[in-house]
Design a protein around this nucleic acid. Sequence first.
DNA 1: CGCGAGCTTGATGCCGATCAATGCATGTGG
DNA 2: CCACATGCATTGATCGGCATCAAGCTCGCG
Lengths: 246, 246
Amino acid sequence: MTHAMPAVIPIEPFKVACSNCNLRELCLPVGMSNEQMERLDGLVNTRHNVAKGESLFHAGDHFTSLYAVRTGFFKTCVSSEDGRDQVTGFQMAGELLGLDGIGTERHTCDAVALEDAQVCVIPFQQLEELSRELTDLQRHFHRIMSREIVREHGVMLLLGSMRAEERVAAFLLNLTQRLKSRGFSSHSVLLRMTREEIGSYLGLKLETVSRAFSKLQEDGVLQVRQRQIDVLDPEALQKLVNGAGC
Amino acid sequence: MTHAMPAVIPIEPFKVACSNCNLRELCLPVGMSNEQMERLDGLVNTRHNVAKGESLFHAGDHFTSLYAVRTGFFKTCVSSEDGRDQVTGFQMAGELLGLDGIGTERHTCDAVALEDAQVCVIPFQQLEELSRELTDLQRHFHRIMSREIVREHGVMLLLGSMRAEERVAAFLLNLTQRLKSRGFSSHSVLLRMTREEIGSYLGLKLETVSRAFSKLQEDGVLQVRQRQIDVLDPEALQKLVNGAGC
DNA sequence: CGCGAGCTTGATGCCGATCAATGCATGTGG
DNA sequence: CCACATGCATTGATCGGCATCAAGCTCGCG
C-alpha cells in the first residue's frame, strides 16, 4: 500500500475476538456456533484504526484482506481515468469492506473513513481456508457477496429510473433501516457525509440534494437542521420511493 | 417455479461435460486441471433450453442453481413494486446467471432469453460442496462474484455521471470487448436487444438511445443499420468514455 | 472575531423526457 | 403476390427537471 498505514492494535485488554464482539449478530459470524466462532477468532486478530478522512485502502492497492467495520462510517468510491468519480456505497458497523479486491487481487475503489473508525482485519486467504471447513461460514460469506450484488441492483434501479426527490427518499429510508437494525432510532439520523457525497452516490449535484431536503421539509416529511435529519413522516418517504410512478 | 419449465436434456451424444466444452476457458472451469474438471463434470450434468422471450427464472422463484450460458443471450432485470423496472445486465456465452439468489435463497430478478438459448445447470449446494474440496474452484467462484460487484460499480459510475452519448459509447465498447474475447469481431455487432432494453440498462429512453446512435453515425464513429452496428472508429468511442470530462 | 468549509437559495440554460408522426422490416391472411 | 397489421426504429417539436452559475448564509474553529 502506498498510503500511510493505519495503526495496528494486535492485542487488547479484552481479546480481539468475534465471539465477544457486540456486532456478531450483524457481521461475519451470523448464525455460527460458539465452537465455530472460536475458529474464526483465530483468524481475526488485528484491528486497524482509521482516522476521519483517511483511506483504509485505495484503488490499485494489493488485496490481501477484507475488513469488517467495528466502529465509524465509511464511503467507497470508484473513479474513472478522466477524474469522474462516484460514491458506490456507505458502510457502517458490521458491514464488510474490500469485496471488490477479490476478483483481480487489487482493490478497485477507495474506502475512506467519514469519521474516526476501527475495522477488524480478515486475511482473505485464511478466510477461504476456514470456509472450506466450516460450511456455515462458507454459506454466510457467499450470502454476503450475493447481497452486495443485489444491493447494487437496487442502486442501479434508483440511478436509472428515479427522480431527485425519490432518490433522496430512498437513500434516507435505507439509512434509517440500517440504523434501526443496529438498535438506533429510525427517525433521527445524524448524517456522516456531505451533500456532495450524497449527491455523488445518488447521481445528483449537491444543490439538487439540498433542494430535495428543503422540499421534503416544506412538505412536513422531514425536519432538516444541517446534518441532523428527523423523519417526521416515514410513510410519506416510503410512498415517494414505491408509489412514485402512479 | 411458477413459469413453464424449459425442456431438460439429460444426456447428449457428446456427454454434457465441462471438460469437453468449448467455453471452458471463459466459464466456471477457468484454470482448472483435467482432474478437477472431471469432478466438475459430475456436478454439471443437465442443460436447459430457453426459447427467445422465455424466462430462465423470475424474481421470487426459489433459488437452487446457478446457470452458465452456453449459447444465446440473456438480460436480467429487476422491478420495483410500482412497476418501474431496470435492466441490470446482459449475459452471453460463458457468463453466470443467478448469483442474486444466493443471499435470500430466492431470485431477485428476472432472467430473460433475448434469443433461443441453452444454459448449463449448476446445483448450488453441490457447487459449494465441491468448492470445499477444490481450492481452485473456490477461488475462481469468489473471483466471479467479486468481478460482478466491480462490474456493477462501473455501471453505477456510468449511470451517475455520464451523458447519453457517453453511456451508449461505453455500452458498445463493453459489448465489443466481450465479443472479441469470445473470438468474434470487435467492430461488427448484431445487437440482440431492443433500443428500449438498451435504454433501460443505461438509464435512458429509447428515443435518446436512437438519437445517440444517429449522432455517432453522423460523426463517422459508427455505421448503424437497425441492429447491425459497425464500429468504424473504436478510438473515438474510447475517447467519449474516458476523455469526456476534459 | 473572522475565516473557511459546507449548506441554502435563486436565476438561467441545457440535456434528455415526452408527445407525436413517420419509416422500415417482418409476418399473416386473403 | 399484395394489403394490412404489428413491432421496432427514427426523427421532429416541445417541455420540464436537473445542472450550472452565482450569491448569501450557518456554524465550527483557530
